[in-house]
Computed example of a mutant assay.
Amino acid sequence: MTGPDPRPMAPDEWRPRDRGAVLLQVRPRRMVWIAGAAAFVTLATAVVVGILLKASGDAGITFRTFDQVGIIGVGALMAAAMMTAALPRLRVYETGVAVRNIAGEKFYPWPLVQRIRFPPGSPWAQLLLPDDEATPVLAVQAMDRGRAVRAMNELRDLHARFGPAPMVRPAGAPPPVVEDPDRPLGRLEIIDRRLAEKGGKGRGRRGGR
């Protein structure tokens, strides 16, 4: 037997109005600040250079208005590309999870979301889907630290309410990787491991009754 289809729902199959109320929304913060500052500096530099361009008699090069506008336009395009860092967004509903990274939004019904994890060394969270497939969640980023921890806790609480039963680690499977507590993401990874172990033990107790 095959598991649930891990592909996200198409827009015409699960429209936003069918998802219910938004229970949680997460966006990156520090990356947006960094990208915004870089975009501002890039655009301001392009504008200043474009305005101050003058004919250079010594070099025999003449900059016209078209050239000035072109330089400012290139700066604007570069700034817009940098601001794509503000696009990632995570929205959680009673019916599933909507993940928007850079291009487009994908909706995953709760039965497909096996687990929410933050792998060691990963810059962002992941949704674990059937058949060991995973999709990145750029809205929950490592550099947000405490804010990312709170988002992961809330997301896991909602997954515990609406998601499928926790997966049990097969007998003989290798133990989870032991995280280094000195690493910046130690708290996220330790929480991830403990919740997975609790889920496995809980299923084992219910199965023994």
Rank of each mutant, 00 (worst) to 15 (best):
D18I: 01
L195A: 09
G208D: 15
R161N: 02
D180F: 14
E189K: 09
A80L: 14
P28S: 11
R187S: 12
P88V: 03
S56I: 04
P174E: 15
R194V: 15
L185Q: 12
A21P: 00
P174D: 15
R150P: 00
I72G: 12
D182R: 13
T65M: 03
P166V: 00
R209F: 07
A151Q: 10
V178D: 06
G199P: 00
T65H: 02
R193N: 10
P28T: 13
P111S: 07
I51G: 03
M1Y: 08
A173I: 07
P175I: 07
A151C: 09
G172D: 11
W124A: 06
F63E: 03
G57F: 06
P8D: 05
R30L: 12
I51H: 04
L155W: 10
A80S: 09
E105G: 01
D18S: 15
N101R: 10
D67W: 15
I116H: 08
P166R: 10
P8N: 09
G172K: 12
V140N: 13
D182V: 08
P175M: 12
E179C: 08
L43N: 05
I102S: 09
V22I: 14
K201R: 13
G186W: 08
V140S: 11
A76K: 14
W110A: 00
L43D: 03
P16Y: 11
L155S: 02
A139F: 12
K54S: 12
A151I: 11
T62Y: 12
D12M: 10
M167A: 12
R161T: 05
